[in-house]
Simulated assay, not measured.
Amino acid sequence: MITLTVEMIVAVLKGKEEMERVIPYRTSEEWPLDVYKQFFPYKIERFTKYPHENTWEGMIIHKNQQLVIGDMGFKGGPDKDQIIHLGYSIVPGFRGHGFATEMGKAIIEWGLSQPNVKEAVATCNTDNEASKRVLEKIGFKVFKNTREKIHWHY
């Protein structure tokens, strides 16, 4: 995993040629997912104004292929209650191979070892079976269910 910088986010929004010039890895044709890319303007603004938040988010690199296959992070770092909020995505072509679980375990271990962090939480849609399995394998436990979301803590 490598940090996703403001320069990289701007390059993604400018197009493939700029992205290839700035990001030091090849990128999957499927990355970034639209659900993640929609937050890029907000992330540019936040990371420019609060650069320390940028250290809490990165791109997942497939080691053998040297290819960006996803993203993972803690949505800006710990909140006022010292809780980090895990978010992640893996492009469809690389799902089901344990990448999210492997990275999730590593990033949770790292995140919980940081100053001013007491707990990690995550949410997923109730019908997202893959995310439920990933969060369970990482070690998260359900603490709340709603009609649309499952809320987890570690």
Rank of each mutant, 00 (worst) to 15 (best):
I2K: 12
I2P: 00
T3Y: 11
T3Q: 15
M8W: 09
A11P: 02
V12S: 07
V12A: 05
L13F: 03
K14V: 02
K14C: 08
E18I: 12
E20T: 08
V22L: 06
I23M: 04
Y25W: 07
E30M: 11
P32H: 06
D34L: 13
Y36R: 12
Y36G: 01
Q38M: 13
Q38E: 14
Q38L: 11
Y42G: 08
Y42V: 13
K43Q: 13
E45M: 12
R46M: 14
T48M: 06
K49I: 05
Y50T: 11
E57Y: 05
E57W: 02
E57S: 15
M59I: 14
M59R: 02
I61P: 00
K63H: 11
Q65G: 03
Q66H: 12
L67C: 07
I69L: 06
I69F: 08
M72C: 15
M72L: 15
K75T: 14
K75D: 09
G77K: 01
D79N: 15
D79M: 01
K80A: 12
Q82T: 04
I83A: 03
Y88Q: 09
Y88A: 10
V91A: 04
F94V: 03
F99W: 15
A100P: 02
T101R: 09
M103Y: 02
I108F: 00
G111L: 01
L112N: 05
S113I: 08
Q114H: 04
P115H: 03
V117C: 07
V117A: 02
K118Q: 11
T123S: 03
N125Y: 09
N125I: 03
N125K: 12
D127Q: 10
N128P: 14
E129I: 15
K132V: 15
K132L: 10
R133T: 13
L135M: 14
E136K: 15
E136H: 08
F140Y: 13
K141S: 14
K141T: 15
V142K: 14
V142T: 12
F143L: 04
T146K: 05
E148D: 15
E148Y: 10
E148K: 15
K149E: 13
I150K: 01
W152C: 01
H153L: 06
Y154A: 01
Y154T: 02
